[in-house]
Design a protein around this nucleic acid. Structure first.
Length: 532
RNA sequence: GGCGCGAUGGCGGAGAGGUUACGCAGAGGACUGCAAAUCCUUGCACGCCGGUUCGAGUCCGGCUCGCGCCUCCA
């Protein structure tokens, strides 16, 4: 049984779905005005593992995973204005980029990925119910949720009205009845709520008509509306970053419980810890963020090569327990890359390269374990591995188990790696909408193909006996440095054969200048590896 | 002011009242013409002060330092 630390209870509890054949899971997705950074990537990866785990425990078909896209927000409007484009143009572009990033990170595609703009009528209906019930009120420019109208307000986030420093960070709008009230709907007359110059209402603002005039929804209401539409009044698990506990999730709960009579909303809540930089929270406003695209090579690489760097970042994110703060540093990527390469080699997977350079690895003697079921069943997964994950998603312990397994049961280790989404994927589909699968089942097929292809492609052999370098067909004809290095490697092989070791060492130095490392194997075969 | 989190070996990072976490780096060995890779072996630890206990990284109390949230945030 899966045990998780439930934010609403403040302790570890058993995950008890109300109906084990219909499990609903909702995770707050991105507001699409800019590419995601590593802090945003953490919940994507963490809850992807939760999704996989629930799929294994209850059956993939039983789990409905909803991860929304917030495509209407004042920051989006402001960013689009700054760039001189329509908001939809910006959101489409950003969503495409987002899908590329999540695919590189090895995340399965959620069951539903609803967009706020597609649920405006549900949002309006919910606001109407809140007004009718006295939980919301209308001012000249806004519709507000009346926080004090719900007696449990603040309970979830453990905050009382009396103890708060209202306006600690942002100013309090003067048409509110109480500082804790929050916006459900903004009329078209209200300017942008953002830091830059576009604070006045703009003609180009996206607008929807409503009983309160033309306007746009507030921030929290869309998640309540979408989860209600797709998962129903009550569902099993709601997740997100710790910074969403208050106010976002508290407000979602308040809205949903008030608008849907008798609702308890989500029964379990999980929140991941922050990604830090030099001990401080990574955030856009501080400017200390690293985008996922930066890690993947700033779009300088073909999509096919970004996947494995995404897997490296995925490993970095899974190496710490999800509730712990994670201090990001590029050195962690280097360490994780080394760890991952070794693990793959140990279980017999040889990806062509983690980087964009034409990588060369020798596949000989290393057979892909693609026969292992890449998205294994409950029964085929190592029990200790599964137990670690079931213990509040202890991925570091699960990874330690994989290391132990790699030595004496590579096939089992490979199944675990596949389950965690840590197999190489050098040929991700570029169209993004397929990513690595439309669900757990497809994800499996695709991951298996990737592993097999990883082992088969991008390899080249240099033999002492017959130095024929293009037999594998993996050499890029246009790659001068590689061709030169291979020539030198042939000469070096000959020199070694003739025991002219001084010449051989000199040749090795020359090859290194070209960017390749020479490695000799005991069987008299040499191999080249691209130096990072 | 309120609420919450963290401190583990050189680094990262689990665990948790008595027994190897694990990874990376280091050391020694095997292998190698030399390297690399690989394999084997190995050293290194629980912020500070008290307390409970036969026994405390682990429980209790206090302290120090760092961080987060209090209506932008994943």
């Amino acid at each position: 049984m899966f045990h998780l630390f439930d934010t609403s209870e403040g302790k570890k509890t058993a995950f008890r779905p109300s109906d084990a054949t219909r499990i609903g899971m909702y995770v707050c997705g991105p507001t699409v005005y800019d590419a995601i950074h590593i802090g945003n990537a953490r919940p994507l990866v963490v809850f992807d593992v939760v999704y996989r785990l629930l799929g294994v425990l209850y059956g993939a078909a039983a789990v409905t995973y909803v991860r929304n896209i917030t495509d209407i927000d004042d920051k989006i409007i402001a960013a689009a204005m700054r760039q001189g484009i329509a908001t939809t143009q910006l959101t489409e572009k950003t969503i495409e980029q987002f899908h590329e990033d999540t695919a590189a990170l090895g995340c399965l595609v959620p069951t539903f990925e609803p967009r706020a703009t597609e649920y405006i009528s549900s949002i309006i209906a919910m606001i109407e119910r809140l007004i009718a019930a006295g939980n919301a009120y209308i001012t000249a420019d806004h519709v507000y949720f009346r926080a004090q109208s719900w007696s449990d307000y603040g309970k979830f986030a453990r905050r009382s009205f009396d103890d708060q420093m209202f306006g600690a960070r942002v100013g309090i709008a003067d048409d509110k009845e109480h500082p804790a009230d929050f916006v459900l709907w903004k009329s078209s007359s209200v300017g942008l709520d953002c830091d830059d110059d576009a604070k006045v209402p703009q003609a180009s603002m996206p607008l929807w008509s409503s009983p309160w005039g033309e306007g746009r929804p507030g921030w929290h209401i869309e998640c309540s509306a979408m989860s209600h539409e797709l998962l129903g009044t009550d569902f099993d698990l709601h997740g997100g970053g710790q910074d969403l506990i208050f106010p976002h999730h508290q407000n979602e709960i308040a809205q949903s419980c008030c608008a849907n009579t008798g609702s308890g909303f989500a029964t379990h809540w999980m929140h991941n810890g922050y990604v830090l930089v030099d001990g401080e929270k990574m955030s856009k406003s501080v400017g200390n963020f690293v985008q996922v695209a930066d890690v993947l090579g700033r779009h300088g690489l073909p999509v096919a090569h970004r996947g494995n760097l995404g897997r490296v970042l995925r490993l970095v994110l899974l190496q710490a327990h999800y509730r712990q703060p994670l201090n990001f540093a590029s050195a962690k990527l280097a360490t994780a890359e080394k760890t991952l390469k070794r693990l793959w080699a140990k279980v017999g997977i040889v990806p062509s390269s983690l980087h964009g350079t034409e990588g060369i690895a020798r596949a000989e003697g290393a057979s892909p374990r693609a026969t292992a079921d890449p998205m294994p069943s409950w029964a085929s997964l190592d029990a200790a591995f599964l137990a670690a994950l079931c213990d509040d998603l202890n991925t570091p312990a699960a990874l330690a188990r994989i290391h132990a397994l790699a030595a004496d049961d590579p096939a089992a280790a490979t199944r675990c790696l596949a389950f965690l989404g840590l197999l190489p994927a050098i040929d991700l589909p570029s169209d993004g909408d397929v990513a690595i699968g439309g669900g757990i089942a497809q994800g499996a097929t695709s991951a298996s193909r990737s592993a097999a292809e990883a082992a088969e492609s991008g390899c080249i052999k240099s033999r002492l006996a017959e130095p024929s370098f293009d037999e594998s067909g993996c050499i890029k004809s246009g790659d001068r440095a590689l061709q030169d290095a291979l020539q030198l490697a042939a000469q070096r092989d000959a020199a070694r054969r003739e025991r002219r070791f001084a010449d051989a060492d000199a040749l090795r130095d020359q090859i290194e200048v070209l960017g390749f490392r020479t490695e000799d194997s005991g069987s008299g075969q040499s191999k080249l590896t691209a130096i990072d």
